[in-house]
Simulated assay, not measured.
Amino acid sequence: MNIELLEELLAAESAWRKKEIADLILISEGNDNPPVILKSILLQLYAHWEGLIKRSAKLYLRYIKERNHKFHEVELNFKALVVKNIIAECIKNQNSLHLANEMNIIQKLELENLKYAVGINVDNDQDNSIIDTESNLTPEVLRKILNVIGLTYRQEYEAKSSYLDKNFLHRRHTIAHGSKIENDESFCLDIVTILNLRKLVFSILDIIIDEILEYAINGFYLVDNKDKLEQYLQQQKSRIQAVFSEL
């Protein structure tokens, strides 16, 4: 996978999801926004929130894997993924009475030509071995995923975490579990709320996808580019603040 293909795949993933939500909103507005459609939009918005994060992160990990970098060249989070994979192989035979697996780990980590290689199945949505949304992509789970792929969890995301928990994730959880909400005055769901949530959710997703591309293009996942990464993060700070000032 080259950078052009990565960009194409990420753009396509985002586009069809945005279109699907836009189509549902048009249907809702054309029918005076019935509650049943608003609930469906909220559920689908969550599905794309979780799906796009998982898919984008996996594509990024696959891109890095195909660069064939050596273990010592990549940042600490990627080294940790390699070690996790090696240890997982060892655990499969944890009842063994000898130390062959443990010694194999040490030998692999001591090899100077050890490659960064992590098995990642982009097309298997049920594979949670590396990117695990825990079927409930809260701000805290998002933080963990960004940490796995080496991206920064922004202060702006944290500032919106309570809003997302209350107005997005809690409502999604309630609807998904079949609770009747039509007569619950504390559960207000209208088209304005839906539109605001869509804007916030896709703003965060757009920023993360843009950053994945920048990290891939500039090799910010490599130890040698740490200083360049710091410069980029500073430059990006004001842009993200501007985006969130409109939300």
Rank of each mutant, 00 (worst) to 15 (best):
H98V: 12
E230D: 12
I181M: 01
S129F: 04
E50F: 03
E246L: 11
A15K: 15
A22G: 08
S203Q: 06
V122P: 03
V201R: 06
E182A: 14
H170F: 15
D23P: 08
E110D: 13
K226L: 09
G119V: 15
T193D: 12
W49G: 00
I131M: 02
A11I: 13
Y63D: 00
I208F: 02
V192C: 05
L164A: 00
N104K: 15
N68H: 13
N124R: 12
Y153C: 09
I37K: 01
I91L: 15
V82A: 01
Q234L: 15
R17W: 05
L213H: 10
T174D: 07
E8R: 11
T138P: 10
V148D: 00
N121R: 12
L45Q: 05
E158S: 09
E89R: 12
P34I: 07
N225L: 05
K79F: 03
G51I: 02
W16V: 07
K54C: 00
I207D: 09
L169Q: 13
D210G: 04
K18F: 10
I240Q: 01
I120H: 03
D123A: 02
K160M: 09
K115T: 11
E73M: 08
E89K: 08
L52A: 12
G178P: 05
V118C: 05
V122M: 10
G30N: 07
H98S: 12
Y116I: 01
K228C: 04
V83C: 06
D125P: 10
A11P: 04
L137M: 00
P34L: 04
E4K: 15
R239G: 10
P34V: 07
L52N: 10
L59M: 01
K166M: 05
K65P: 05
N147D: 15
